[in-house]
């Protein structure tokens, strides 16, 4: 294939995956609201409620406050949406090849995950409201909190894959291609469960959901980071949240539950890709239900100082214990192999 052809197909594929990401992400938010409503003995909004909300926000007036920095205030939501979509391009969706999958690995995804949050921080500081400023500071503190446990999970998995002799252990395609549960022994399984718990606790903070939504806290900060945003800009931030929800689900699926339906049941190639995509979406919905919906219905909000303690002490220790178990498992495996 010529260079122009390659670039053309990547661009086309990128557009398709982005559209898929927006639609699937918004439906995920709808499913989340519906399930939460059912858990509270309510009927809840229809599944397409997030689409209705976005369409309404696009009709509303877009206010830029007088003491805001207009270019930063207006560009922050765009950056947030675009960077969330870019992450999606690196993550395998079922058995479909991700458009940029071979150009970046899990480390890059970790860095990219901070960009939507940083865009929100920039937008919050640029809106010139004390509520937004407090929210932006809290967002930064939360980010510092959850990055460390997330890094432990990523390093732990990649290191164990490397120890098992997998080439390019940080590449998401090789992580998804070698399900980690089949590689490790019993000790490693315990370690992996600990790491899974850590990733499950990092997810609500990445998406600023209860109990880690101190930066948007509606009751104390009146919306926090988003307090001054209205109309189109608020719609863009909602889209960014939607895509990020899909991204976090897809990431957990790619790392911990990468199995595809087509590897168990024989089927023709075209059917297999569709079936895998549907199976992938089912897994994402399940992950989202457990990590976001169940937690946000069952818990109250943490204070910001509790957030840091929870991540840096409790979940960093749990993550390190998981990492140690994985190392012990690897050492035992090697010893058994030598004997």
């Amino acid at each position: 294939m010529t260079l122009a052809g390659t670039i053309g197909s990547i661009i086309l594929w990128t557009v398709l995956v982005s559209l898929f990401g927006l639609v699937a992400g918004l439906f995920l938010l709808g499913i989340d609201r519906k399930l939460a409503a059912h858990m509270q003995a309510r009927i809840g909004p229809p599944l397409r409620q997030p689409f209705i909300d976005i369409r309404k926000l696009l009709v509303k007036e877009n206010i830029v406050p007088e003491n805001a920095i207009p270019w930063l205030f207006n560009s922050a939501p765009v950056i947030a949406v675009v960077s969330s979509l870019v992450i999606l391009l690196y993550i395998p969706l079922g058995s479909l090849i991700s458009p940029l999958g071979m150009y970046g690995d899990l480390i890059l995804v970790m860095y990219l995950l901070t960009i939507p949050a940083l865009a929100m921080v920039a937008g919050g500081f640029a809106s010139g409201s004390p509520y937004a400023t407090v929210g932006a500071q809290r967002e930064m503190v939360t980010m510092i909190g959850y990055e460390f446990p997330l890094a432990i999970v990523v390093i732990g998995i990649a290191w164990r894959l490397w120890a098992a002799g997998v080439a390019h252990p940080f590449l998401l395609s090789s992580i998804a291609g070698n399900p980690i549960w089949g590689i490790v022994g019993p000790l490693g399984i315990i370690g992996l469960i600990l790491l899974l718990i850590v990733l499950a606790v990092v997810t609500p903070a990445e998406l600023s959901r209860i109990p880690f939504d101190t930066q948007e806290a509606e009751t104390e900060l009146a919306g926090g980071l988003l307090v001054e945003y209205s109309g189109r800009n608020l719609a863009l931030f909602s889209l960014s949240t939607a895509v990020k929800t899909l991204v976090m689900g897809a990431l957990a699926v790619a790392i911990f539950f990468p199995w595809n339906l087509s590897s168990f049941v024989a089927m023709p190639a075209g059917v297999a890709q569709v079936a895998d995509l549907l199976f992938f979406l089912a897994k994402v919905v399940l992950v989202m239900f457990i990590t976001v919906t169940l937690v946000r219905v069952g818990m109250a909000r943490f204070r910001i100082n509790q957030v840091v303690t929870v991540y840096w002490v409790h979940f960093a220790l749990i993550g390190l214990a998981g990492l140690l178990l994985l190392m012990a498992d690897s050492a035992l495996g090697t010893a058994a192999g030598v004997l």
Binding site: I43, G44, K56, L221, A222, G223, S230
Partner: peptide, 21 residues
């Protein structure tokens, strides 16, 4: 409250006047 559940119709309380209709 869940007894009346206005979220069925997309109605929800927001904290900031900028988000309100």
């Amino acid at each position: 409250t869940p007894r009346y559940d206005p979220e069925r119709f997309g109605i929800k309380l927001v904290g900031s006047p900028r988000h309100a209709d």
